[in-house]
Design a protein around this nucleic acid. Structure first.
Length: 905
RNA sequence: GGGCGAUUAGCUCAGUUGGCUAGAGCGCCUCCCUUACAAGGAGGAUGUCGGGGGUUCGAGUCCCUCAUCGCCCACCA
């Protein structure tokens, strides 16, 4: 029989040729869904963090979804009813902005011109046509989520859940409406929450303004970075301990330009050493002043319109933009001689996350959720260990936010989103309702006719926080909810720990942990998810965040096209260790590509040999026993790492086994007996041995494909399809095959023995390279074996060592005689020798030996010093001392041998 | 102002509870297109583990401190 490889497989790993077809097979086989009928099996569920419906896949998504896919594939193979539920988020502001922009560009119209209903139709239209780009991209990545259960946060059932949750909070008194100072986005013309703003350090000015005392006895100077807000000033504050406060507090000032009488008050929060020590108070437009004004009982005057321009309270400045007004007001103060000075000042400007324009704090009527009480169970969940973070340090971040949580402004002045389920009667008395209240119907409490529904919509996160259970049918008591909730694993980005993670846990306890229709096991009060995995940030090669505007992003889809989805997935996993940020350049995916190619070709080799006769028993040679032991150890290691969510460790173990053990040593070793059988077709013993080798090759490959599958699903599934049916058994598709259980294959003896052989082979290769023995030459190698184990190991496997070292002959001796005129190296099994040829230059060999000797002597010195130290002998563990003594003897022996070797070269 | 992370080979990173001569991939040097794979094989070189101090018989690992880089929170007008 001639060697041949499976004819269908190309020499190179060419993912584009099979990935789409493999994915289609999985979908056709309905492989992603858990069994329809719940059995007795354990469940494992993951809710995919829903990407924005406007989103396109970026590296963060690729990383996060690879993680989830690996976990779910591993659990699916391990016998769980595994559910990974996908979906998208309606992303109120982002989506509305996209469509508004499009409307303006294509039809030169605005949402206001269209009206609410027509505009929403446009958004839904856009969503249907462009909204699911990212889900398609996740398929390319290989995501094995249950697409039949795909959810959208504005689906009818999700909307119902949102209403029920709102009404419940309303009834419990956790939701309230009130005039509070909020972060106002003048561009988008909506309030945004504290978690949707950021600060940007900008160079600006600190203007010093003089406010004359009403009694004409002079003036007081205040400093401000926003002079235009003076139009809304209703007081000035100084610190009560400030020496000047005695003279000032109680007096009034004449506010210039608007000619208003405002009091001077004392407030503890004023920093007497900053600026002039006096701070103007604008309770309508500054969060700190809002608090101070409330303490002093000052009125609130709002001077800005929703678009940021000055309103009618601004007198002659009314109608100006905030920028224009600022200049005009400074000029006016200057004209009046009331401008005390201008200094350059670098300060933080509050910016809206969404529009990237400066936030104007302003007082307005909004809906809020009172958070403190709701936060308590979420705090307890983490503190009690029911909710674990990985890496654990993120728990602190989570707790810090919850323990200092502020009320959540949940109303948004948008149209795209869940409209607030509150109706008003003619006296503006509100009522929340799960079902629509018809205009004209009676208000349930007052009996007066309902006149309108609240115009605002809810913050997007007010639907996202229900995600783990609303996606399963909550508030209905569905079979899915009972079966798959709470979930086990959540993987997400660190920047939404507050926005999303903490709120989900709060919602979990607020809505699903009660004496409702759901019967939870009281001994298992863990809700939402038991592990929150915070994945790494993917940075560019310079360590900067990837961003659209900077143009430094790497497109995962392009990478998938170039390197293959498996290569992208595997690279991401081995590159990131436990949430440690990763600096990524496109060529880093070569690592995964090489690995995939290696798997591909190793499989081609094995498959090519499986065509011969296969025994039903394993080979019994040391390498057969060794590789099976290594496979068992690897399976254990990979399984444990995956259960601990240590993806990098699992990927590394797979790399080591696949490349170093299986390819570099086992396959090379196996060739010896396969070739022997080819060379002697009539030799029954050789044929039988080859048949056993094939069996081992096949079984090891089969299990290796299983272990690799979560990481490189396409490639392994494609190769699985090439395996002979007898190896696959009933398992037609790898995705639903059983995770290998390889207990019992451990074999410490084989591992020890093969390690000795491997060391001897390396010794020969080393000497050979140092002596620069030409490739064709096959000198007679000799080994001076040391120790019984080495002698038997080598004696029984001379042929194998020869094969691997590509030598002509090898003799094992133990009589202590050194062969003369030989190049030598020291191995753990003893000394290896290769005879000098006539023109041998032993210079390199000598240098190498000297270096080794130097290193060993250093080691000897170190240990001698240690063992000479009485305190070491007293304090160190007996085991450590014993092993040091052993080590010393070993090193001394090595040194001796090396010296002898040196003397003879 | 508070918190967190990072600093180990030329580059990117591992290094579990303190304990063999600190590892990997890429790059580099030598040899090899050996019939699975040149996206490969064999061999090799490369480290004052950011600085300083401390604890310890013993520190890359624990403590203190400093430096540099990055992130998060708070936000004084």
């Amino acid at each position: 029989m001639t060697e041949s490889t499976a004819p269908t497989l190309p020499t190179r790993y060419t993912p584009a040729e099979f990935e789409d077809a493999i994915y289609a097979r999985w979908e056709a086989g309905d492989c992603f869904a858990p069994p329809a009928e719940p059995g007795n099996r354990k469940t494992f569920s993951i809710m995919m963090p829903p990407p924005n419906v406007t989103g396109v896949l970026h590296m963060g998504h690729a990383l996060n979804n690879t993680i989830q896919d690996i976990v779910i594939r591993h659990r699916r193979m391990s016998g769980y009813d595994a559910l990974w539920l996908p979906g998208t988020d309606h992303a109120g502001i982002a989506t509305q902005a996209v469509v508004e922009k499009k409307l303006y560009q294509e039809k030169q119209t605005t949402r206001k011109e269209l009206g609410r209903e027509a505009f929403l139709k446009e958004v839904w239209d856009w969503k249907e046509h462009h909204g699911n780009t990212i889900l398609g991209q996740l398929r390319r990545l290989g995501a094995s989520c249950d697409w039949n259960r795909t959810k959208f946060t504005l689906d009818a059932d999700m909307s119902h859940a949102v209403r029920v949750s709102f009404v419940r909070l309303w009834e419990q008194g956790h939701v309230y409406r009130g005039a509070r100072i909020v972060n106002w986005d003048c561009k988008l013309q909506t309030a945004v929450s504290d978690d949707e703003i950021e600060y940007e350090t900008r160079k600006g000015h600190l203007w010093h303004l003089r406010y004359p005392l009403s009694d004409g006895s002079g003036h007081l100077v205040v400093a401000t970075t926003r002079p235009e807000t003076m139009l809304g000033d209703t007081g000035v504050a100084v610190h009560p301990d400030d020496a000047r406060s005695k003279d000032w507090v109680g007096k009034t000032l004449r506010l210039p330009l608007v000619d208003r009488e405002i009091p001077i008050v004392a407030d503890e929060t004023v920093d007497a050493s900053f600026g002039t020590g006096a701070v103007k108070l604008t309770p309508g437009h500054d969060p700190a002043d809002y608090e101070r004004g409330a303490r002093a009982g000052l009125p609130i005057i709002i001077v800005l319109n929703k678009d940021g321009s000055i309103n009618e309270n601004g007198g002659r400045f009314a109608g100006m933009s905030r920028e224009t007004a600022r200049e005009a007001i400074v000029a006016a103060f200057d004209e009046l001689g009331l401008l005390d000075g201008i200094e350059d000042y670098t300060h933080n400007v509050t910016i809206s996350d969404r529009s990237k324009t400066p936030i104007e704090p302003l007082v307005s009527e909004q809906w809020f959720v009172a958070m403190e009480e709701l936060a308590q169970p979420a705090i307890a969940a983490a503190k009690s260990g029911r909710l674990k973070f990985k890496p654990a340090r993120w728990e602190k971040v989570y707790l810090d936010w919850l323990e200092n949580v502020r009320d959540w402004c949940i109303s948004r002045q948008l149209w795209w989103g869940h409209r607030i389920p509150v109706w008003y009667d003619e006296d503006e008395v509100p009522v929340a309702s799960v079902d629509d209240l018809a205009i004209g119907s009676a208000h349930p409490k007052t009996g007066k006719p309902i006149v309108r529904q609240d115009d605002d919509v809810l913050d997007t996160w007010a639907s996202s926080w229900l995600w783990p259970f609303a996606t399963l049918g909550w508030p209905e008591q569905t079979a899915d909810l009972r079966r798959f909730y709470p979930t086990q694993f959540l993987s997400t980005a660190r920047d939404i720990i507050y926005l999303w993670v903490a709120r989900m846990v709060m919602a979990g306890y607020a809505f699903t942990d009660e004496d409702g229709p759901l019967a939870f096991d009281s001994e298992d009060p863990q809700l939402c998810f038991s592990t929150c995995y915070i994945h790494a940030n993917v940075l560019d090669a310079q360590g900067k965040r990837m961003s659209k505007s900077a143009g430094n992003g790497i497109d995962p889809v392009e990478m998938i096209e170039q390197y293959g989805a498996d290569a992208v997935r595997y690279s991401l996993m081995i590159l990131t260790r436990e949430g440690q940020d990763v600096k990524l350049a496109a060529n880093r995916f070569e690592l995964g590509q090489r690995f995939c190619n290696k798997i591909w070709n190793a499989a081609r080799f094995v498959l090519g040999h499986l065509e011969g006769e296969m025994a039903e028993e394993h080979g019994t040679a040391v390498e057969d026993r060794w590789i099976r032991a290594r496979l068992a150890a690897t399976a254990t290691e990979v399984g444990a790492a995956l259960e601990a969510y240590d993806f990098h460790d699992a990927a590394t173990a797979l790399y080591r086994f696949t490349w170093d053990d299986f390819c570099d040593w086992y396959l090379e070793a196996a060739k010896r007996r396969l070739r022997a059988a080819e060379d002697a077709p009539e030799d029954a013993a050789a044929q039988a041995e080859a048949a056993r080798v094939r069996f081992t090759l096949g079984e090891v490959l089969r299990d290796l494909l299983k272990l690799l599958h979560p990481f490189t699903p396409y490639l392994t599934e494609a190769l699985w399809g090439e395996l002979p049916a007898r190896l696959r058994g009933e398992e037609d598709l790898l995705i639903t095959a059983a995770w290998p259980t390889s207990a019992g294959a451990e074999d410490a003896t084989a591992v020890r023995e093969f390690d000795l052989l491997r060391d001897v082979v390396r010794g020969f290769r080393n000497v050979r390279a140092l002596l620069e023995i030409p490739a064709g030459d096959q000198p007679a190698g000799q080994l001076l074996a040391e120790g019984v184990e080495a002698e038997t190991a080598i004696a029984g496997n001379q042929e194998l060592v020869l094969w691997l070292a590509r030598l002509a002959s090898l003799t094992v001796r133990s009589d202590g005689e050194r062969p003369g005129d030989s190049g030598t190296d020291l191995t753990r099994a003893g000394g290896v020798f290769l005879p000098f040829a006539a023109e041998t230059d032993s210079g390199k060999l000598r240098a190498s030996l000297e270096k080794k000797l130097d290193k060993v002597e250093k080691g000897v010195g170190g240990i001698e010093k240690k063992l000479g130290n009485e305190r070491f002998l007293q304090n160190a563990d007996a085991e450590v001392v014993a092993s040091e003594r052993e080590r010393l003897l070993e090193l001394q022996r090595e040194a001796e041998m090396l010296r002898a070797n040196l003397a003879s070269v």
